[in-house]
């Protein structure tokens, strides 16, 4: 059983429709640790020791957040800047995180078609997440294809409930090692693999 750590960043969860549902699901799953960064550090005072200890305690790190300006909310950047220390996370003697898995779990307001070359946003999700992917690689961890919940602006209550159910089953599958991670390597997003898993 893999130990999951969700690094969750949403600055206004009270206004969120989708993440509020998702994170409630996650909090109910045994073996999943939810680290709600904005709730834990409202003043951006990241406790580096606590965060590093959390990372060491888990096998799979999920970066869960809405897409803000083609990137993460601000606190997740602050978290990277402070927690991933040279000599600990990277560098010739920085091997603390070696071998761990990292998954970006992202919501976007726009639909999947908007994140294509020639689409409204001109770049794919994978391209936009290149800084994260490279950060993960530099810290000697493995970056999985991101799982993206597209088109949240147009979701009604039923669609949100369905997304939350899929999310829950995804977390359970990750926890119980039921996803063929070698097989998904190289695909742009995790979504097709998850769809297959849930149908099968």
């Amino acid at each position: 059983m893999a130990r999951l750590l969700i690094l969750f960043a949403h600055p206004a969860l009270e206004k969120s429709r989708v993440h509020r549902r998702l994170i409630r699901e996650a909090q109910a799953i045994e073996g999943v640790t939810v680290n709600d960064l904005y709730e834990e550090y409202p003043d951006f005072q990241i406790n580096v020791q606590r965060e590093q200890a959390l990372l060491l305690d888990h096998d799979l790190i999920v970066l869960q957040h809405p897409m803000f300006w083609y990137s993460t909310p601000a606190i997740l950047k602050q978290w990277q800047d402070l927690v991933l220390e040279h000599g600990w996370a990277y560098g010739s003697r920085g091997n603390a995180l070696r071998g761990k898995l990292v998954l970006s779990l992202i919501t976007t307001g726009g639909g999947e078609a908007a994140y294509q070359h020639g689409g409204f946003n001109r770049y794919t999700i994978a391209e936009l997440l290149a800084p994260i992917a490279q950060t993960v690689r530099l810290c000697k961890m493995e970056y999985l294809p991101p799982y993206v919940i597209f088109g949240t602006h147009r979701m009604d209550e039923d669609a949100i409930a369905m997304a939350a159910a899929r999310y829950r089953r995804l977390l359970l599958a990750l926890r119980d090692d039921r996803i063929d991670l070698a097989g998904v390597n190289g695909s742009p997003v995790l979504n097709p693999a998850v769809a297959m898993l849930l149908e099968g």
């Binding site: 580096v48 800047d81 402070l82 991933l84 220390e85 040279h86 000599g87 560098g91 010739s92």
Partner: peptide, 12 residues
């Protein structure tokens, strides 16, 4: 804050 301190990095 060590994360913002590039001294060890420069040395390496």
């Amino acid at each position: 804050d060590a994360g913002w301190d590039a001294e060890s990095l420069r040395e390496e």
